[in-house]
Structure formats: C-alpha cells, structure tokens
Amino acid sequence: MSTTRTALVTGATAGIGRAVALQLASDGIHVIAHGRDPERGALLVEEITARGGTARFVTADLADADEVLALAEDAGEVEILVNNAGVYAFTTTPDTTPDSFDRQFAVNTRAPFLLVGALAPAMARRGRGSIVTITSTAATSPAPIGGAYGASKAAVELLTRSWATEFGPSGVRVNGVSPGPVRTAGTTAMLGEHVEVLGRANVRGRIGEPEEIAHVVRFLVDEASAYINGTVVVASGGELSSMPA
C-alpha cells in the first residue's frame, strides 16, 4: 500500500499557492493543484514532474458553491488541504459593490468552509490530517480601505480555530498562516515598481517572498509540528508598531 500523502492546494498556479505546491511536491507529497487557468495549471504540473514530483491540475470557480463541492469530490480523500485561493478589492466601504463583497466572502470564507466540511470528515475517520488556511494580516490590522477583504479573512481565522476544536480530537490539525506583504504577481501588478514600499512597514524592512510562506505551510503539515493546532502563525517580518519605543 502506498504511503504517499496527497494534498489539495487551492489557488496553486501563482504566488503563494504555487510556491506551496512546489514545496509539498518536492517533499514527495502528491499535489492536486487547483486553479482557474488550465494553461498555467499544465505548466505547474510539468514543472513539478520535471523536478521528480507528481501532481495533477483541476479547475473550479470557488465563487460557485457547486463547483467547490465538485472540486472536493474530484480531490477525493486527501491528507492535506491548503486553503490558499483568495480575492481582494482594496476599496472603501462606499466603493465596495454588493457583488464585490459577496465574491470576497464566497472565495475567501465560504469556499474553505465547504472544502473543510467535505474533506475533514474522512481525515477524522482515518485519525490523521492537516488543514492550513492562508489568511492575512488584514484580518487583524484595520485599514481605511479593504474592509470587506479583512473581514473575510478574520472570519476564516475564527473558523480555523473552530475547526481545530471540532476535528482535533480525531487527529486532524487545523492551523493558519497570516502573511504580511508578499511579492506576488498581484502585488506587483497593483504597485508596479513601488512594490518594495510594502516592506518598509515591518521590522525586516523588506517584502516577503512566496517561498518563505510555503516553508511555514510545510512545517505546519509536517509531524514536526504535531503539537500545534488551532494556531494562526503570523509571517509578516515583524510589525514595527508592536516593537517597544
């Protein structure tokens, strides 16, 4: 019987999700990579295969609840779930449309909720499993824009702790990673050459890299972190505001 573990990683074709998929595959974990772009998905699978790993790509619109449930059914029994996919609109409250609000909560909060509901019971029956959700420091740092995004991430952080108490007694660990500013295609497209400015707000004085977040995820799904459950690990470079004067 094969001992290879299987991981479903949402939003795996770019940024943090891509780095997570590559990291897990390099450690011998079979990756089910989710995304919306089949071309990018094929390139990711090709890269993982070239590095000696195994993966397959599945597509789904996480704003559609039926597609989320179909994704869970397609994935089958997995040992690892990484809820990474997310959407954001850094707008003021008056400028946030109902459709934008609903989409952010559908993708950032409801999709992880449905995937955990569909996949965690089988993990619990087997007595093992690990779920990691990528949240954001926006969940705990109020700002004049992006309130809906921050609220959607705050909600999934609470769910993360709730799931840990719900499934923890059955051997399933549920944790989160809360990144600060990270260099991704999204942040680069939004800020262009000014993307480095984001890093000035932390103690390290620089923006994070997707691979650095992927290393934290890898630790949380490994047995080395077996005593960690219901925790959201902040990977932000250290907040300047929290340092003593």
Rank of each mutant, 00 (worst) to 15 (best):
I16A: 04
E46R: 14
G53A: 06
M123F: 13
R183M: 11
T93E: 07
A7Y: 11
F167T: 11
F219S: 08
V20N: 01
F90Y: 14
S170T: 11
I48W: 04
G171R: 10
S236K: 00
L62K: 07
T231R: 12
L43F: 00
D222E: 08
A60H: 02
G41P: 05
R126F: 02
E193N: 14
R218E: 08
G208W: 03
R206N: 04
Y149Q: 08
N108D: 12
G208C: 06
V68W: 04
G186I: 13
L8Q: 01
V58W: 02
D27N: 15
T54D: 12
R183V: 05
G41E: 06
D27Q: 15
E157Q: 12
F167A: 11
H194A: 15
T231W: 08
G86S: 15
F167G: 08
A111L: 02
A50T: 10
I213D: 03
I228V: 15
G230S: 12
A185F: 04
A139M: 01
A14Y: 03
S100Y: 00
L8H: 06
Q23D: 15
S152L: 08
F219A: 14
L71K: 05
F219P: 00
D64E: 13
P210Y: 01
T92P: 11
T59R: 13
V45Y: 04
P210M: 05
G28I: 12
R173I: 10
L240F: 07
G129P: 11
D222V: 02
Y227K: 05
I32G: 09
G35A: 09
M123P: 07
L69W: 00
R126C: 03
T109K: 05
A214F: 01
E211Q: 14
A148G: 06
T184K: 10
F57T: 00
R173Q: 09
V174Q: 12
A124N: 06
S26Y: 00
S225K: 07
A151K: 01
S26I: 00
P112Q: 12
Y88P: 01
S136T: 05
T13K: 02
A12Q: 06
A124D: 08
T3W: 14
E157T: 04
E196R: 13
P38E: 12
G11A: 07
G28L: 08
D74M: 06
Y88G: 10
A151Q: 04
V82L: 07
G11E: 04
G117D: 09
A235S: 13
R161F: 02
D95F: 03
T59G: 15
L198G: 05
D66M: 00
S141N: 14
G176F: 05
P169F: 13
T133H: 05
A72S: 08
A111Q: 09
